[in-house]
């Protein structure tokens, strides 16, 4: 595929922006959590610590240095993949994240597939026949999906399909890197709950995008030339909503990453989200910082890929700077 000069320039500019954003993300994550009240060293020293013990811990973790020095040190190591170690378990934060990420990624991907498989056809059908029953159903599903508390949906699903009928497990998930089939099976209920807002968002955006294409001048011309409605819909309509699809999938992905926190807790899945909750409760802020940084990086990278895809699909696109 040939990428035009404009697109290339845009991609380069977008890549260059990546660097300062990553720096800002790291800085915000580090500073905000360092503002926490209380001395982490005292916290770590346990009950009735001696002054020497606290000082020892301070020096071990470098808490006694100025905050900007601490940040520079942390960020410098982070760039090499070292996110320091957990205050509680002494386990390297990067190892924790790598071992937990597959659970979260599996859930998010599964939910994305569910949302796309339901949302895209539903949105197209609604756009093809606006004002009919299918359009009403689609808009009903959209309204419901964005308003329903997804973790409540998760609870209802557990009550019905796990506790009442025992079709799916209520909690837990095998390690996806070892037992992918079993993990997928266990991830079904949480992923359905996680997909709720995604289905809504994708349906709504697809409908709007398709209607914009279908009411455009050139589609009118194609129809006048005698092309069948289905050909117009699938050949020309779909091709031209590519941008919409990427935008909405990116958006939905970003939201899902955050939403897993609650669902992993409901379903007792040992992913990034439940690790976050556990670390936050226990004030293990080195882990909290590490997770926030890595997850924000995931989101930034997904957005970057989306922007590059825009530039390739449609060279006219000027990504807002």
């Amino acid at each position: 595929m040939v990428i035009s000069k404009t697109s290339q320039r845009m991609i380069t500019r977008r890549m260059l922006q990546f660097v300062p954003v990553v720096f800002c993300v790291a800085f915000i994550a580090f500073i905000m959590l360092s503002l926490a009240p209380g001395d982490p060293a005292e916290l770590l020293a346990g009950e009735f610590p001696t002054e020497e013990r606290i000082q020892e811990i301070r020096e071990y973790y470098g808490f006694d240095r100025p905050i900007l020095v601490q940040f520079a040190d942390w960020f410098g190591s982070a760039l090499t993949g070292d996110l320091s170690e957990s205050l509680l378990s002494r386990e390297p934060v990067m190892d924790i994240i790598i071992s937990r990420f597959p659970y979260t990624l599996l859930m998010v991907t599964y939910a994305m597939v569910i949302a796309t498989v339901i949302g895209i056809p539903l949105g197209i059908a609604a756009a093809a026949k606006p004002g009919t029953w299918i359009d009403t159903v689609a808009s009903g599903i959209s309204s419901f999906g964005v308003a329903v508390p997804y973790f409540w949906v998760g609870m209802v699903l557990v009550a019905v399909f796990a506790l009442h009928w025992s079709v799916f497990p209520a909690t837990g998930m095998p390690d996806p890197t070892e037992d992918l089939g079993g993990a997928l099976y266990a991830a079904t209920l949480p992923s359905i709950a996680l997909a709720m807002s995604g289905i809504a968002e994708i349906t709504r955006q697809m409908r709007a995008g398709m209607i914009e294409v279908l009411t455009s001048q050139y589609v009118r011309t194609l129809r006048a030339k005698g092309l069948s409605p289905n050909k117009v819909l699938f050949r020309h309509g779909l091709r031209n909503v590519g941008i919409t699809v990427i935008t909405v999938i990116t958006l939905v992905f970003n939201r899902k990453i955050g939403a897993t926190v609650v669902l992993e807790t409901v379903f007792a899945i040992p992913g990034i989200g439940s690790t976050m909750v556990h670390s936050a409760v226990n004030k293990d802020y080195v882990v909290v910082q590490g997770i926030i940084l890595v997850m924000a990086m995931v989101v930034i990278t997904v957005n970057l890929i989306a922007d590059i895809l825009y530039a390739i699909i449609d060279p006219r696109v000027e990504v807002e700077t």
Binding site: V25, A259, I292
Partner: peptide
């Protein structure tokens, strides 16, 4: 300002809020 906004927009909402709320009490 725009880069800081980009950065803030990349934090997954609830994940970040849990971190802040947990650490700050």
């Amino acid at each position: 300002i725009s880069r800081v906004l980009d950065a803030l927009l990349s934090f997954p909402t609830i994940l970040f809020a849990v971190g802040i709320a947990g650490i700050l009490g």
